[in-house]
Amino acid sequence: MTSMDAHFGRPNLLRNKDIRRRGADPLPLLLAQLLLRAGRPTVIDRTTSRPWASALFEGQRHTIWLRFSGAEAQKQKDRLLAGLDDAEWTLPGHFVADIAVDGEGVADQDVWVRLSALTIRDW
């Protein structure tokens, strides 16, 4: 037979926080800052995100496709990429651990670039 302490109730239990939903998704803020950095008209063609974790950190790996059109397309792309590695990003509860160019080119008179970014939850 099992006994139970009557004074040990639910309020006395320690609970772990849900690790799946800590903080907001950093991608929308990162996209907004990338668009401000590139200038108008820049189009986000698509994005993908997937969870990422190491022994000490958790975050997300993002792939971002941007398209630039018009007479200033190449200048916009160059403006975006100039100093991208050293750029400061404002992502409450997160930081950008890595951002890099995965590909770039020209298609149908538009200039495009594919970026890869790793955002980490800032404990």
Score class of each variant (00 low, 15 high):
residue 113 V to P: 08
residue 84 L to N: 08
residue 17 K to H: 14
residue 123 W to P: 10
residue 86 D to Y: 09
residue 104 E to I: 00
residue 36 L to Q: 13
residue 32 A to E: 13
residue 49 S to D: 00
residue 15 R to V: 13
residue 120 I to S: 03
residue 22 R to Q: 14
residue 42 T to K: 02
residue 11 P to H: 15
residue 32 A to W: 04
residue 27 L to R: 13
residue 42 T to Q: 00
residue 86 D to M: 03
residue 48 T to V: 10
residue 88 E to D: 07
residue 84 L to V: 01
residue 32 A to K: 08
residue 64 I to N: 02
residue 63 T to S: 14
residue 17 K to L: 14
residue 41 P to W: 03
residue 20 R to W: 11
residue 31 L to E: 11
residue 78 D to F: 14
residue 111 V to C: 01
residue 82 A to P: 08
residue 63 T to K: 10
residue 74 Q to M: 13
residue 114 R to I: 11
residue 122 D to P: 02
residue 1 M to I: 07
residue 12 N to P: 01
residue 81 L to W: 12
residue 109 Q to C: 03
residue 27 L to K: 05
residue 99 I to C: 07
residue 92 P to T: 06
residue 118 L to N: 07
residue 20 R to S: 15
residue 75 K to V: 13
residue 30 L to C: 04
residue 52 W to D: 11
residue 47 T to S: 10
residue 30 L to M: 06
residue 19 I to F: 05
residue 101 V to Y: 02
residue 23 G to S: 06
residue 48 T to N: 15
residue 3 S to G: 08
residue 70 G to T: 02
residue 15 R to T: 09
residue 9 G to T: 08
residue 74 Q to P: 02
residue 34 L to E: 12
residue 41 P to N: 09
residue 105 G to Q: 03
residue 53 A to W: 01
residue 103 G to L: 06
residue 104 E to H: 10
residue 80 L to D: 01
residue 42 T to S: 06
residue 79 R to T: 14
residue 50 R to H: 02
residue 4 M to E: 07
residue 94 H to V: 14
residue 38 A to K: 09
residue 19 I to L: 11
residue 12 N to H: 10
residue 54 S to M: 02
residue 88 E to C: 07
residue 111 V to I: 13
residue 51 P to H: 04
residue 12 N to G: 11
residue 22 R to C: 03
residue 1 M to A: 09
residue 89 W to L: 02
residue 59 G to H: 09
residue 108 D to L: 00
residue 48 T to L: 11
residue 71 A to Q: 15
residue 67 R to C: 00
residue 38 A to S: 15
residue 99 I to Q: 13
residue 102 D to I: 03
residue 15 R to W: 12
residue 66 L to D: 00
residue 87 A to I: 10
residue 76 Q to K: 12
residue 81 L to Y: 11
residue 24 A to E: 10
residue 114 R to A: 10
residue 80 L to A: 12
residue 98 D to C: 01
residue 38 A to T: 02
residue 86 D to H: 02
residue 119 T to E: 01
residue 65 W to P: 00
residue 86 D to V: 05
residue 106 V to R: 04
residue 111 V to G: 01
residue 106 V to Y: 00
residue 6 A to M: 09
residue 37 R to V: 03
residue 102 D to W: 03
residue 21 R to D: 14
residue 113 V to K: 04
residue 109 Q to H: 05
residue 45 D to K: 00
residue 64 I to P: 01
residue 19 I to H: 14
residue 95 F to L: 08
residue 24 A to P: 08
residue 92 P to E: 08
residue 56 L to T: 15
residue 35 L to G: 05
residue 106 V to L: 11
residue 84 L to T: 08
residue 83 G to K: 14
residue 71 A to I: 15
residue 37 R to K: 11
residue 18 D to Y: 06
residue 44 I to Q: 04
residue 34 L to R: 06
residue 8 F to K: 04
residue 94 H to Q: 08
residue 9 G to Y: 03
residue 6 A to Y: 05
residue 109 Q to M: 14
residue 61 R to M: 09
residue 68 F to C: 01
residue 33 Q to E: 13
residue 3 S to N: 07
residue 83 G to D: 12
residue 120 I to K: 04
residue 9 G to N: 08
residue 61 R to S: 03
residue 111 V to N: 07
residue 14 L to H: 07
residue 5 D to P: 04
residue 26 P to L: 06
residue 11 P to A: 12
residue 42 T to Y: 00
